[in-house]
Structures are given as structure tokens and as C-alpha cells.
Nucleic acid binder design. Structure first.
Lengths: 152, 152
DNA sequence: CTTTCTGCAAACCTTTTGCATCCAT
DNA sequence: ATGGATGCAAAAGGTTTGCAGAAAG
């Protein structure tokens, strides 16, 4: 059976990029931290555990390459750092994010909730949508119940 | 009649900030470029025309202050620069953006299209939404018709 | 073999900060 | 008068780039 990493490798290969150990280690780290929103520095430190000789510049170059291939999405939550988020396999659009302003946690919504909104935008503004970025800021489930506890 | 700039001034005053000429000039520039998405540098150059002695650091400090007061929203379209966008007076939520991947134009949608989506998010994920950021990438009306022209 | 990739360090850019001076209130 | 605000220059991030050597295909 073909694994996810194999398919990503094939994608690299197909675009005539070389399969170096550094690139493989970087992809592996991203797969192992699929739920997280790692910065380039985060990825660098994690890849270093597998390939200690890797340089930060290589990580940046690999992440840019994976962004071009749409394997990852590059996002910016406004804290001055770019973060790299693995795209769901075959997903047409980028998933949504919930950022808690209390605890800072970032949760993901994989389900696409924008179908109807996109129909409106496409027709009303004659805009052909290729992708979207949707982020909500608010209080997450966990922090809300902390408040409830405090009020008891 | 009270003008928009007067109300912003009052807001500054109310939060016990001083009304300096530099701050006034910055607010003025933002009002004059309401449709644009200016970076700090852009604002700096425009403010310099009114107040040539202003420093870039002051512009940054003023923009941060206006962001705290929710007069402007700080956004990042992923090009490594923060941009500052005047919020509609009294708007509860930040407006949406349409970025054209052909010509780079950024259009705004002032109307809030996320009402239904937010209800779903609030109930299904028990997340109390305070604000949202929604951006679409695609081909704008103008570029689409350029293509049509080309095909004729 | 050839071309691409890597690591290192330097360069770059945007944003922030320290500090002496200035100025609204 | 006096505490906050400014301008300047330096510092501080994060990211990109040039280059010589290494290695994948």
C-alpha cells in the first residue's frame, strides 16, 4: 500500500525535484505534527533531531517548495511568524482555524463551511474563487468552561 | 455636525491619549485612503507629505494604538508586511477581502456574509466568536473579462 | 558527470526599543 | 511643570541570498 509520504515523494519527483534526506526528514516532521501550526524555526528544531546537520536555510527552501506544490499552506496569524500547515490530501480548499484569545490554542475545522458564502461571492462580485482563508478569534470550549467553573 | 475624524479624536482623547499633530496627520491619511490597504511604510510616506518631520517609529506606534482602539484592523496578506485597514464605523466584525491572483488588487466586502457559518461554529464547536478574518483568493471581475477579450 | 541542493554566513526587511528631547495638557 | 509622545539610531527578529562544496539522478 502506498503511504502518504510516498505520494508526497512522488509529487516532488514528478515536479523534477530531488529526493534528498533533508527534504524527506522535513516532510516526515510535518506529517508527525499534522495537528500543529509550526513555524520554520519549529520545523528546523524538529528536523534537527533526525538530520542534525541541516541548516535553517534548507528548511525555508523546502517549506517554500512544499508550499508551491500545495502540500502545505503557509499561514500568518499576525504574530510576525509564518506557519506551515499540512493540507488535507485532495482538499480543494484550505481548512478553517479557530484561535482562542485566552489560551492561544489554534484548532482546525476540516469541514468546508463556506459553500454557500462562496456561491454568493462568485455571483454577486463575479469573482472566481480559487482558495480561501477563514480564521475566527474568540473563546474556545475549554476556556469557556474554565470561566463557568470560576463562577460557581 | 460631528465628522468622522472628530469622533476618532474623541476616542483617542477618551482613552487618555494626547492629540498630537502626528497622530492627527496619520488618522487623516488613513481616512483619505480608506479603500486602500496601506503598509506602515506606505502610511509613513503619505504622512510625511503633511508632517515632514515625522519618524517611522511614530507611525508604527500610532498604528498600534489605533489597532488597540479598533479604529483600524491590522492584516497580513502573506507578503511579509502588515497592512492597516480602517474599520467601518460601528462594525462588529472585520470586513472580508477578495485578492486577485492575476492583478493583485484587493477588494473589500463590507457586508457580513458569515452569519450562518458563525452560528454553526458557535454551536458545533462551542466557540464564542469575537471576530473573524475571511479572505478569498481568485480571479477578479476585471481580469476575467480580460481573458474573455483575449479569447475572442 | 552535470545540475541541483546544501550549509554557512552575510545581507535584507520589517518592526521594536532605548534614550534624550520636546510638547500637550 | 510633567508625564506622555517624538525622532533618531541602534537592535531585534524573521527570512532570503551568494557562494563554494557536496551529492542526487
Amino acid at each position: 500500500m502506498e503511504s502518504r509520504i510516498d505520494r508526497i515523494k512522488k509529487q516532488l519527483h514528478g515536479a523534477s525535484y530531488k529526493l534528498t534526506p533533508q527534504r524527506e526528514a522535513t516532510v516526515l516532521v510535518l506529517l508527525e505534527h499534522e495537528e500543529d501550526h509550526l513555524s520554520a524555526e519549529d520545523v528546523f528544531l524538529l528536523v534537527k533531531e533526525k538530520a542534525p546537520e541541516i541548516g535553517l536555510a534548507t528548511v525555508y527552501r523546502t517549506l517554500e517548495l512544499l508550499t508551491d506544490l500545495k502540500v502545505v499552506d503557509k499561514i500568518n496569524f499576525g504574530d510576525g511568524v509564518s506557519r506551515y500547515d499540512l493540507r488535507q490530501e485532495g482538499a480543494a480548499h484550505f481548512h478553517h482555524h479557530l484561535i482562542c484569545i485566552e489560551c492561544g490554542t489554534v484548532d482546525e475545522i476540516q469541514e468546508d463551511l463556506l459553500g454557500d458564502v462562496e456561491k454568493i461571492v462568485e455571483s454577486r462580485f463575479e469573482f472566481a474563487i480559487k482558495d480561501h482563508w477563514l480564521t475566527f478569534h474568540g473563546i474556545c470550549k475549554r476556556c469557556k468552561s474554565d470561566v463557568d467553573e470560576g463562577e460557581k
